[in-house]
Deep mutational scan, measured.
Amino acid sequence: MSIQHFRVALIPFFAAFCLPVFAHPETLVKVKDAEDQLGARVGYIELDLNSGKILESFRPEERFPMMSTFKVLLCGAVLSRVDAGQEQLGRRIHYSQNDLVEYSPVTEKHLTDGMTVRELCSAAITMSDNTAANLLLTTIGGPKELTAFLHNMGDHVTRLDRWEPELNEAIPNDERDTTMPAAMATTLRKLLTGELLTLASRQQLIDWMEADKVAGPLLRSALPAGWFIADKSGAGERGSRGIIAALGPDGKPSRIVVIYTTGSQATMDERNRQIAEIGASLIKHW
């Protein structure tokens, strides 16, 4: 067993022997301040990774656009098919120029040779490549099948209805392509620590998230040296922004954090800054 596999296998073990965790309302004060600064709703939840206990939450059962955070769930569904012998990570998928959609920095470079399922998941999570996500959605049967996968996990809230990039439209009061912070946090925890996926697939999923290259201005910008984070960000229309993450000190994750916002007129930089400040408060009061 590799060191990384050992780390993920012992996530519940280490967490069980940690000192009790206590909620700190100071972080919620910052979440509410972010709402004021952005002029928009902000949803927040913080779960203990081992027990699933909610440590703090704000608007945990209000719907927010998922945006690209759905790509972690998508690759979880792909990995479940791999575990069941219905898919192979090494299978190569070929596609054409007509398949390319807006923001496809990886797939646009491989029109000639195609990409493997493993490479597509890596591109979808680490670079948020939209064509990679659409190609992977095709392998599982489309958005409705991802929703069905989530329902089978016990998540009857999260739903995907459309493809990239239309799913980022974020129309107010439109339930399409949305989740709730509580539902997303619980589902992410199941994917990373539950028995739904094999140990190898859980490790692969967290490795992809740990290698995320496009979430630097968010929670990662607030992390002290030595902290662990595996995350996936999302951005959408109407001032929408979000991030889902597993993080913790001492090089291992111990909490799940989900943050979503929508309806702001603020710039992307300002949305990023507010999420980073929430992260800084979380870490300060850990």
Rank of each mutant, 00 (worst) to 15 (best):
P25M: 14
V29C: 14
V29R: 15
V29W: 15
K30E: 07
K30G: 04
A34V: 12
Q37E: 14
L38C: 05
L38P: 07
L38Y: 09
G39F: 09
V42R: 00
G43S: 06
Y44C: 01
I45H: 04
I45S: 07
I45T: 09
I45D: 02
E46N: 12
L47F: 07
S51W: 05
G52H: 07
E56C: 06
S57W: 09
S57V: 11
S57D: 08
P60R: 14
P60I: 14
E62Q: 09
E62Y: 07
P65R: 00
P65A: 07
M66L: 13
M67G: 12
S68D: 00
T69Y: 01
T69G: 01
T69R: 00
F70E: 01
F70S: 09
V72M: 06
V72A: 08
R81M: 10
R81H: 10
D83C: 04
A84N: 14
Q86T: 15
Q86M: 15
E87H: 05
L89E: 06
L89K: 04
G90W: 13
I93W: 01
H94Y: 11
Q97V: 15
N98W: 14
D99S: 10
D99L: 08
V101Y: 05
V101M: 09
Y103M: 07
S104Q: 00
V106E: 15
T107H: 01
T107D: 01
K109H: 13
H110E: 07
D113H: 11
D113L: 10
D113C: 09
G114Q: 03
R118V: 10
L120P: 01
S122D: 15
S122H: 13
I125W: 00
T126R: 07
M127K: 09
A132Q: 03
A133P: 02
A133V: 04
N134L: 00
L136N: 01
T138H: 15
I140M: 11
G141N: 08
K144C: 10
T147G: 09
T147D: 08
A148W: 11
L150R: 01
H151V: 12
N152E: 15
N152L: 13
M153T: 10
M153L: 11
D155P: 02
H156N: 14
H156L: 13
T158W: 01
T158F: 06
T158A: 05
R159N: 08
R159P: 05
P165H: 06
E166Y: 14
L167A: 08
N168L: 01
E169R: 11
I171V: 15
N173H: 14
D174W: 02
D177A: 03
T178P: 00
T178K: 01
T179W: 00
M180C: 14
A182S: 14
T186K: 15
L188G: 04
R189N: 10
K190A: 15
K190P: 04
L191V: 10
L192A: 07
T193C: 13
G194D: 14
G194E: 12
L196S: 13
L197M: 09
S201R: 07
S201T: 08
Q203I: 09
L205Q: 01
L205H: 01
D207F: 10
W208R: 01
E210W: 11
E210R: 10
A211F: 09
A211M: 15
A211Y: 13
K213P: 05
A215W: 01
P217Y: 08
L218R: 02
L219E: 03
R220I: 01
L223K: 06
W227A: 01
A230I: 06
K232P: 00
S233M: 02
G236A: 10
R238V: 10
R238W: 12
R238A: 11
R238S: 11
S240C: 08
S240I: 04
R241Q: 06
I244H: 01
A245P: 01
A246Q: 07
P249S: 09
G251C: 09
G251L: 11
K252N: 13
K252Y: 11
S254D: 14
I256S: 02
I259M: 09
T261E: 07
T261G: 04
T262Y: 10
S264L: 04
A266I: 09
A266V: 13
T267I: 09
T267S: 14
D269S: 12
R271W: 05
N272E: 06
I275F: 15
A276P: 02
G279S: 09
L282E: 01
K284P: 03
K284S: 13
K284M: 11
H285T: 12
